[in-house]
Design a protein around this nucleic acid. Structure first.
Lengths: 213, 213, 213, 213
DNA sequence: AATGAATGAGGTTTCATTCAT
DNA sequence: AATGAATGAAACCTCATTCAT
């Protein structure tokens, strides 16, 4: 009846821009409310589309969430991996660089809310847990482990069990992420994350340091 | 098939035992599923009663949850406060005592799940957040702050900003609690909490220590 | 095992007083909340007994309600019937006497709430409706009808269809009862029932009067 | 058994027609069962939709009820107000016009059930009471008051206290509404409302009339 | 491609009635 | 005779998902 070239689209946006807009809206909503408490209707409204449209792009709520994580957390990890392999200075400084860039690119952004959310809700959504462990946790831990080994090899750090020290070292950053995105601990709301990070890294490097020269 | 004498009653009266049974069942369910995802019907079934019975003992879901927290988390905090004021040895050792008894009485038990849950869901339940901050967080932080001040006063610890160091010091214990009760971070499942705690406390005391004598 | 005379009752009250106490409590509760909205637990508390005790005296909620009506509304009607047959003066005055004693003994008391309640809820409880029509409405209407006939026979009142005029004449009194027990019509709360009744009876007698001499 | 072409859709979109259909169904259900006893599921079934659909159009039960009242009772009142201000004849006739059109448009329809319901249940639902008093009772009473004042000003009616006479005059019509929609008073079922109204209006006008010329 | 009306299972809470004590 | 703990069938309301338009 009408040739494809002359169809005037009834809707403005191109198919290609949509997914990103939806993912951005979903990220914000998931971070604000958590996974279970996020209503797809709110995601849709936030993206300026209708509820039905979400289902054109994502099979269901779970797939939408996975897409959000894939889209936003994998890249920074890759960059950090690159930083480590090319780094030249001492390992305390490298640890600082890694932790600070983690903070800057994830912790200080909306993405930090994902950590909180996964920690809390993964128990109710085993598929999400598996997915997150494989694509995020394992690689993130790998970064820290490598820095520790580097420092121990160079004699800067004491010999330590990296399997233990890796989570211990990440904990304060993870907690800062969570506190920043949680109503718990009002006290935290008055603490500057930068000061916290500085104090923590100083503390950590001292804790790791080989016996004083 | 059954003689009249062995007909079992449709229910039993257990007025005195019930509240504890319900609280125990509720704790398990809240810890397993989170606050919002816990269905009161499941709590009831777990306690072997009907849905309606819950409402004889607790006004609603929120009050049930508060009762669980009050019943199980406030006491250990009180004891720890007592320990500190009577303690005689050095502050590094006191820090160890406090953190280890926290771990033993809360972190290593089901109660640790409450921390995780509050961190995640407090944003959606402002009343619970307020309650938890006042009755748990504030007092818990107070414990650590007091130990830090004690150590600084005695010259064992460096002069530090306690407002910053208190959350930093609690973070690895909180994270251990969460990891233990979360599907996230499979790696943790292979780490012995005791080893983690030992490694962490050692690390922390070094990080706090005044410049070597 | 023990002779009847020496049993010391575990409970204070005698069996005989109970029903009246329960009926009084039930009347108040029914009048305050309506039939469906009345919770038997509240009736019990009001009477100072337990919920279970109600069921020792009344089969269920409906039987309790019927007992309340029987116990409280039948007697005044009987008295009014007696007043009419013995009355000597003019019929306008008799109408005044009947309506005023209705008001004094029922309208101005808690019992008025029963009228309101039956009017509204009888549709949902057909058994109650049948019961009330037979034992209350039919006899009450009979009173008015007889006064009208008396006045028409004596020439005081115009010839009127008593089947029509009986409900018309009772309507303002019924409405006053209802208004007094209802949140509807704030205006009424500022009107003195006595003034309303005076104004109404005056108005009614004029409306009924045979053409002026 | 059925050809593919005749499969009937699981539902139909009726955005425009729906609100009226829902209001109509709700009115019938409210009138039949009362406010509290009306289950939204029944309203939905009556309108041929699911429970959830109701909530697309009305926020909750209370708003649904208010919408029913606004949709059906406010308009006739507005029209009656208009009639009064433009009326030219004598006030007895005007009173007849007002009362009869009240009867025709409300009393004789399902809407009369609303009066009954509000009278009975307003005590349990203070918000509804406030709403109804403001939007219905106040304006309805205003109509009658204005007719009375008009008749007194012109010398047709005696000088009377309108605050008293307004409710007295409306009472028989309200009662007729209620009787018509109530199981109480079987007798009424055999009375023609039209005859009742005629008899009443005649009676009322005589009761109001100034002393014979 | 896009919409948003429609669904219905599932959650919290209430309360008449039963029955072990 | 009296209690009150226990039950379980509703009731209102929410929201992921479907599908007619």
């Amino acid at each position: 009846m009408s040739s494809p070239t002359e169809t005037k689209p009834r809707w403005e946006r191109r198919k290609d821009a949509r997914p990103q807009e939806l993912l951005a809206a979903a990220l914000e909503q998931f971070v604000e409310r958590g996974y279970a408490a996020t209503r797809l209707e709110d995601v849709a409204r936030r993206a300026g589309v209708s509820k039905g449209t979400l289902y054109l792009y994502f099979e269901n709520k779970e797939e939408l969430f996975k897409a959000v994580v894939r889209d936003s957390i994998v890249l920074p990890i890759g960059e950090a991996e690159h930083t480590i392999s090319g780094y030249d200075g001492d390992s305390g400084a490298l640890l600082r660089v890694i932790l600070m860039s983690w903070w800057d690119q994830i912790g200080a952004t909306k993405l930090a809310g994902i950590s909180k959310l996964m920690m809390a809700e993964s128990g109710n959504f085993p598929d999400l847990a598996r997915f997150y462990n494989e694509e995020v946790i394992a690689r993130g831990n790998g970064l820290i482990t490598r820095v520790l080994e580097r420092g121990m090899d160079s004699g800067e750090f004491r010999r330590l069990d990296t399997a233990l020290m890796t989570p211990i070292l990440t904990a304060p950053v993870l907690m800062l992420e969570m506190w920043t995105h949680s109503q718990v601990s009002c006290a935290m709301s008055q603490i500057a994350p930068a000061a916290y990070m500085d104090a923590y890294i100083d503390f950590a490097v001292r804790g790791l340091a080989a016996a004083a020269a």
